[in-house]
Design a protein around this nucleic acid. Structure first.
Lengths: 220, 220
DNA sequence: AATTTAATTCACCGTGTGGTAACAAACAAA
DNA sequence: TTTGTTTGTTACCACACGGTGAATTAAATT
C-alpha cells in the first residue's frame, strides 16, 4: 500500500523528467544557443553527470527531448480526417489558405518551435532525423490528398506549396529579430492580416490554375 | 621614387585587409559559428590585439566587413535600368520569374551569403543594420516599380513577393543541411528546375491577377 | 544487520574563449 | 642621436565549457 509518495530522495524517472523539461524551458527562455551540458544541469537543478548516465550524451538527451514532442502532427490532424472532395471549390480554397495561415501562426507563437527550427538549420544533431520524420509524417499525407484531387494539374503544386510554407517559416524566424521585413510588419496584427490575405489570394489563384486542364502555364 | 614595395615589415593597411579577408574566408570555410577573436586572428596570421586596436571590437570588425560587401545591390541593378512598361505581359512575367530564380541561384551558390543570412537570424550584431540597409536599397526600388505598374491591384503584391522571396531564401539555407525538403530535391538540377517552373507559374498567375480590375480576390 | 546495488554529489582536469597589460621593435621627427 | 609615436609580440588573467574519477548516500537485497 503506497501512501502518496513520501518524496523519495532518489528518483531516476523524476530527474530524467527534470532534464527533459530543462531543455524545453531553456530553449524557450534563452534560445538554442544556450543549450549545453552545464546549462541544462543547472536549469534542472541536477548534476551534469546524470545527463551522461541517463542519456549517454547531450545529443542523446536532445534526441529524447525531440522524440516526446509533437510539433507538427497535431496541427494537420484535422486535415487528415476531412474529405476534400466533398467541398466546393471556394471552400477548398479557404481551407487551403487556413492551413497555411495556421502554420504561420503556430510558427509565430511557438518560440520553442522557432528555436528548434533554427537550430536544425545551423548544425546537425540528433534533432534532424527526428524532426524530419515528424515533418514527413504530417505533410506527406496532405500532399497526397491534393495530388489525388488535381491529378492533371499543369502546375507543380508541391513545389509551390513548399515555397510558400518555407516562406512563412522564414518570416516567423525573422520576426524574432526584425520588427519588419520588406515593408511587412511582422509583429503587428496588420502585418498578420496582410499575410493572411496574401495566402487567400495565392490559394485561389493556384488551386484554380490546378483545375484548368488546358496547359496554359508552360515554361519555355 | 618608390621601388615596388620592399615588403615593409609594418603595414597597418595590410593587416587591416588581412583581418577583413579572414572574416570572409572563415565564413566560407567554417561558417559563422566559427567566428571569434582568436579564430580570426589565427586565420589572418596576425595578433588578436590588433583587432581591438583597428576595429574597436569584434563587432566593429564584422560591421566593417559587411559594409565593404555588396550582397544584393548588384543583383538587382539590371532591373533598375529596365523599363517594365515597355514590355509585353508575357515578357514581364518572364522577367519577374527570372528575378526570383536568380535570387534563388545566388543564395544557393554563395556560401558566404548563406552564413551571413543565418547569422543575422540567430543573433543581433553589427551585421543587422548594415544588411537591412542593403536589402532595403535593393528591394524598395523594385517594389515601387511594380506598384506603379499595377496601381489598382486587387492583391497585395508586396506581401506575396515577400513570402516567395523568403521561401526561396529558406530553401537555400535548408539545402546546406538537408538534401531534400518536402519531396523537393534541393541539390539536384531536377529540383532546381521544379523551383524555376513553380516561379514561372506563380509569376504568371499573380501578375495576371494583379491586372484584373474586377475585385475577384476578396477575403471574407 | 550486513551487503550489494543504484542514484547523486563533489572535486578536478584540459581546453578554448574574450580581453588586457606590459614590453619590443620599426619608423618618423627633432 | 635622441625622442616620441606607431605597429606588432609576448605573456598572462578570469572564466565557461565539456568531460571524468572517485567518493557519498539512499534504497533494495540477502
Amino acid at each position: 500500500m503506497e501512501t502518496t509518495l513520501p518524496k523519495p530522495k532518489r528518483n531516476k524517472a523524476l530527474t530524467q523528467r527534470k532534464l527533459l523539461d530543462a531543455v524545453g524551458s531553456l530553449l524557450k527562455r534563452e534560445g538554442f544557443q544556450s543549450i549545453g551540458i552545464n546549462a541544462i544541469a543547472k536549469e534542472a537543478g541536477v548534476d551534469k553527470v546524470l545527463i551522461y548516465r541517463y542519456f549517454g550524451s547531450l545529443d542523446g538527451l536532445i534526441e529524447a527531448f525531440a522524440l516526446e514532442r509533437d510539433y507538427w502532427v497535431s496541427n494537420f490532424k484535422t486535415a487528415q480526417g476531412l474529405n476534400l472532395q466533398n467541398l466546393t471549390e471556394v471552400q477548398r480554397e479557404q481551407f487551403t489558405a487556413t492551413i497555411f495561415a495556421n502554420f504561420y501562426k503556430t510558427m509565430l507563437q511557438n518560440k520553442e518551435l522557432q528555436e528548434i527550427t533554427l537550430w536544425e538549420m545551423v548544425e546537425v544533431s540528433g534533432l534532424n532525423k527526428v524532426l524530419q520524420n515528424q515533418r514527413d509524417q504530417s505533410t506527406l499525407g496532405l500532399i497526397a490528398l491534393y495530388e489525388q484531387l488535381f491529378p492533371n494539374s499543369p502546375i507543380d503544386l508541391q513545389a509551390i506549396a513548399t515555397i510558400i510554407a518555407t516562406g512563412l517559416q522564414q518570416l516567423a524566424l525573422l520576426s524574432r529579430q526584425l520588427p519588419a521585413f520588406n515593408g511587412i510588419n511582422l509583429q503587428s496584427p496588420e502585418g498578420m492580416q496582410r499575410i493572411e490575405n496574401a495566402l487567400s489570394s495565392l490559394a485561389q489563384l493556384v488551386l484554380r490554375a490546378a483545375n484548368t486542364p488546358e496547359n496554359n502555364y508552360t515554361h519555355s
